[in-house]
Design a protein around this nucleic acid. Structure first.
Lengths: 274, 274
DNA sequence: AGATATTTGTTCGTATGTATT
DNA sequence: TAATACATACGAACAAATATC
């Protein structure tokens, strides 16, 4: 146990051919310090001054290390008396952004996303069914109200499509499976960000509104009577339908594409330089 | 747990309560610069000196910004002539580490992971079936060879369990769905890191080896004849069986737990300080 | 192989900004 | 308002790494 075997598990990534940077060592040391002292969210790290003496490093190096921890969502730093670095609980939004950075390079399609949603959203609904409360059901009904009528203009159409995704996000809040909930919400976010999806969403009736609403009302009813299997079945059908419609509309628009944020600009820039 | 802040309403995520840091502004500017110039992996950013003049910032501030980008896996920095900051393609390992940081706080159980694996691994196998080649099938067979016999000792038992997970990781390599592949491999990694799973893996016969191997050989055969549906069905059965066995063994050992890396140490530290 | 030029890495001193009291 | 305690930012100098000749 005490022998430090390479274990062949650690270096799957890149060979650290260059010497370890001091700031990175300090990052690891601070991480160790956190777990060894059992620090949790809200607890404060030693202040810069003390870290400087403790690690015998300069201000700049310590700041780099703290910056690294901040980007990872592990700490946040405040100025003023009583300020300093505080342990944070990483927000879901940050985790998703970081993950988006990774998937940025890969080509993600509507088909990829719906392949997963079709499998996972039913599970999500089932796992939320035992835990959702009256307040949650009321929130779902309130969201449906956003799109239970014909949109007046493109702006409202967009709002309705986003609300439809929010519906599923609320369901995720009541799941007892954190990793399932995260994955589903991430997929929902991808749909919001995917440019091709955005193009689809502004099309007239990107999804059969009536049919979708019926499914969602059925889902609420199933959850209310704590029918997990029924909830899953309803969502399976709902997802299959949504997938068909999205793919159908996609066929009319484009073929391939990349993820969200800035890809179109990037592609355009590439074309310019070519 | 002890979320001391009443905080009531507004700030759900991005609360610009404190003034924006200069380094963060520069991070965003550099990101914009990257997409606007259509920079891809391997391309170089301006050197520190130029960034300093360009943003009218000090060296320390620029370095903080670069460190932030580095942690996000967007760039890597090299010294020496021709050195500088280069655009990187974020590695899967880094993405998983970042995601682990997020899920660290939440309690993840074997049941949570297998609930997802049961749904996703069959999809994965199906999506890999049309694309896997002879080399891939050979790799799968080679991995099976690692555990097609009784383990001699605890060390080999562990090695066999890891190889079993690697089997599925190889399948993931041939999927055409990047996000599905990533998710499955992440779940596999969680199983490697979960302490409770580690405890289970050193138990004698944590998984019925014979049955598992049969499934995997069947899977290879199905893939070889390009039978995606068959592959999915085999994996569905395999996962259901594995889940039952893991949960059964878990019941004999523990009840709840947290994720890998340092949680045990942290829990121990808490106990010490208490 | 060794010297050199280039570029990042680290340190120190100092000044400014910001939140608490 | 002022004093205090902390992070934030600047600039100059020096140290270390590495590609090239």
């Amino acid at each position: 146990m005490t022998d430090t075997q390479p274990k062949s598990d650690l270096p799957p990534d890149r060979a650290p051919r260059s010497r370890r940077k001091r700031a990175d060592e300090i990052v690891d040391s601070i991480k160790r310090m956190i777990v060894e002292h059992g620090l949790g969210p809200g607890d404060r790290l030693p202040q810069e001054r003390d870290l400087i003496t403790q690690f015998a490093a300069s201000k700049g190096t310590i700041r780099e290390a703290l910056k690294a921890l901040e980007v990872q969502g592990l700490i946040s730093v405040r100025t003023g008396p009583g300020g300093g670095a505080f342990i944070e609980r990483m927000s879901e939004g940050r985790a998703m952004s970081l993950l988006s950075n990774f998937l940025f390079a890969k080509s993600i399609s509507i088909a990829h996303i719906y392949q997963m949603r079709r499998a996972l959203e039913p599970l999500l609904a089932a796992s939320a069914t035992p835990h959702i409360d009256q307040a949650g059901l009321a929130r779902l009904e309130a969201i449906i109200a956003v799109y239970d009528h014909e949109p007046a203009d493109a702006q409202e159409r967009w709002t309705q499509r986003m609300a439809e995704l929010d519906f599923h996000a609320v369901v995720a809040e009541y799941s007892d499976n954190p990793i399932l909930a995260f994955t589903c919400r991430f997929l929902q976010r991808m749909l919001k960000e995917l440019t091709i999806a955005q193009d689809i969403y502004v099309q007239p009736e990107p999804v059969q509104r009536q049919s979708g609403i019926e499914h969602q009302r059925d889902l609420i009813a199933a959850m209310r009577r704590r029918d997990a299997a029924g909830a899953a079945a309803i969502l399976a059908e709902h997802m299959a339908e949504a997938e068909q419609q999205m793919l159908g509309l996609q066929a009319k628009l484009s073929d391939r594409f990349l993820i969200e944020t800035d890809e179109p600009k990037r592609a355009a820039a590439r074309r310019r330089t070519a």
